[in-house]
Nucleic acid binder design. Structure first.
Lengths: 106, 106
DNA sequence: TTAATAGTTCACAAATATATGAACTAATAA
DNA sequence: TTATTAGTTCATATATTTGTGAACTATTAA
């Protein structure tokens, strides 16, 4: 496999982190498995929209689904996703702080 | 700041990882500082395109730029970005392997 | 001053992602 | 059987990203 192809696959899975609703879902599922309706109740918004985002995340291997009766239970496929997500949040917070410091000097 | 606003900022910085060229740049800069022309030579493509991607990454606080003479030297702003990136690559590789295993059973 | 190098910025076209509501399916309950 | 719950899928409108080439700016060299 060429490097370029690796970068594409790598970027593709990283895209899962690039939407507020998907970040929120990762946040919610960090230490629990929840069914669709529970997630929807927490995040708000349209069910069709959430369903599509969960579907993308599942297809990309970020989430697992488990069907039980009429409910679909979602969970994180790997703790590594959560770790990566937390690291990026730290970077964001650090940038936020350094911007605030900079603004304070004006 | 509301949770939703945090998720937006978080997702926004994660978007930096969601493009093959930007992943390649992070890869290249993982242990060195390089100027624009060097990066362009490695990645290929149009200079305007690379310039715009580097600009986005810098604005989002993923990269640092240092001007020296006529050259712009780029480097990673934080090792945490690299760590996050590596974790996501591991997830991607694990998924790739498990897909291959699944295909082998057919 | 003129030319060359090293990039950035801009305008616009094309591609991709996102949101929305309606229609649909599958499982359970009445 | 009929209704209800729990979601998925689809079509389509809108928004955002991305790629491209031309024009531009800043620094150094001749």
């Amino acid at each position: 496999m060429t490097d370029k192809k690796i970068f594409e696959l790598h970027a593709d899975i990283c895209k899962s982190l690039g939407h507020p609703l998907r970040i929120e879902v990762i946040d919610i599922l960090q230490d629990q498995e929840l069914c669709f309706t529970d997630i929807l109740e927490i995040t708000g918004g349209l069910k069709s929209n959430l369903s599509q985002h969960l579907s993308v995340m599942t297809t990309k291997g970020i989430l697992r689904v488990r069907r039980e009766g009429q409910c679909n239970y979602f969970s994180l496929a790997s703790k590594k996703v959560l770790q990566a997500c937390k690291l990026m949040r730290e970077v964001m917070i650090e940038n936020l702080k350094s911007n605030q410091k900079f603004l304070a000097t004006l």
